[in-house]
Design a protein around this nucleic acid. Sequence first.
RNA 1: CGGGGAGUAGCGCAGUCUGGUAGCGCACCUGUCUUGGGCACAGGGGGUCGCAGGUUCGAAUCCUGUCUCCCCGACCA
Length: 570
Amino acid sequence: MRYSEYFIPTVKETPADAEVISHKLMLRAGMIRKVAAGVYNYLPIGLRSIRKVENIVREEMNRAGAVEVLMPMVIPGELWQESGRWEQYGKELLRFKDRKDNEFCLGPTHEEVITDIVRREIRSYRQLPINLYQIQTKFRDEIRPRFGLMRGREFIMKDAYSFDVNEKEADKSYEKMYQAYCRIFKRCGLDFRAVEADTGSIGGASSHEFMVLADSGEDAIVSCNSCSYAANVEKAEAGLSGLSPDTEMRPLEKVLTPERKSIQDVSEFLGIPAAHMVKTLIMTADDKLVAILLRGDHELNEIKLKKVLGCDSLEPATEEAVLNSIGTPVGFIGPIGLTLPIIADLVLKNMRNFTVGANLEDYHIKNANFDRDFTVENFADVRNVVAGDPCPRCNNGTLEMWRGIEVGHVFKLGTKYSKALNAKFLDENGKEQTLFMGCYGIGIGRTVAACIEQNHDENGIIFPIQIAPFQCIISSINPKDENVRAISEKIYSEMQKIGIEVLLDDRDERPGFKFKDADLIGIPVRIVVGAKNLIDQKVEFKLRKSKESELVAVDDVVHRVENIMKEVLA
RNA sequence: CGGGGAGUAGCGCAGUCUGGUAGCGCACCUGUCUUGGGCACAGGGGGUCGCAGGUUCGAAUCCUGUCUCCCCGACCA
């Protein structure tokens, strides 16, 4: 491709609405342009990288025995009503009506549609297992789209669905996909971890997320420094150990804490570490109030609490609701004398003589203790783990914390959708059985964005060769020079002949201008053809990721680049 | 949905408080020049100041409403 005939609208200045580095660089490099909140145009080099990821995904899915299909983006509402998700899914599901007033939605995920295909077409255990996938544009009407392709409303996703005769076989399909995902992200040149995860609105028994490690990641994940345990903080189990108990209980002591409402304020005011305090959160769970006790320096994990309570909705109680029901303003609530049901975090079991709110404005109470001063309904793991917590699996390691970008998620669905949609088959005894499912997603655009988060410097993107829009760029210095132009063209056509994806920068621009663009769009290999070096029949060879360049004979340079491609893409 | 911020040339911004000819940098067009890290000079084009009302002799500027976008939170893959 000739740069002069191509379309790469790079910009010097960063558009004001970009926050994270991948978003900024994708805009600056002319990969994407915003059309509406969370909705983007893919410009040529952006599209090329996306296609690269798609092709890697496609190859590995095919290799793992999955079969490609393409489902519609517009889905009849009745399918979603049948699964029960028409009501459950909420406002993320964009609904609309056609001219006949029939209800439709834009597909945010395709369990319903795929299960509909399978229940119509699969009759016998002889047709199983089967794994169908597609690469398709999805739409989820996110409350707050952000960070460019990282969290769009419209985005390209690979989604796969496996169908098996029983749970054991379904586990095998899951394992196959897990392995395929590892190969995919490895081939994309990403530093990633597979972690245990919460299944969220997709549902099912268990799941793993594939997380690209990056400080800008929206997810927090933990991993054990001793064993292989790794999990999303949403899911990570908190170990049991906490502070060792004081030997004996001391008497209660009411202390004045005027206008000290937060743990931090009270902690500083009384000179007591937050870890020796217990905070009392009042939550509204399905319209009922419940009190949650947590160590002062810990945070509530609402997903865990939801499971403990078995409720559908859970949110912090409003200040009015708290005041009306307890008679004390938020900030001074405590468990002693509280009439609400109380759930205490597991770690509190080991605590003695902790400080709590007094249920009296401007007062806290020191030396509170379980049983003597109040009782709780039960102890449960309802907090977020923190760095340094003991590992819940091996018990001799501690947990380290990372930020991650979720690029893939694999689920064991069991029979959730097949039951709801009545997807059955006949087993070898002629008996009707319900299909066991798994589903497997990869965010294609997000994978490209995550890759940029991991691979960039102050000058721009540093694409790994596997997903770079072009493998090589020839920067022709002063293409008006006849010799420079001729040699550039020669190298260009030789590279094209052997299948190297090459971009010839034949624009009549100054050298610095071309170098800046080449660096910004992150082409892995750069060949600079200039008059000075041509005197010795040499051109400059430089890898985007390295600082140094070297001079290579004109006759060797194509071979040199070819070897690099072979090495990396082997 | 709660809190905060912003809509002025393609992009980044000033001007708004204190109403009176709509500006700067980059980009773009023409020409000269230049060619190893976003050259230089000269000339030029481009704006319903988000939208709708209102106040006023006069509104980018004041008032009311409304839409969009961004950030934090809530929510959610």
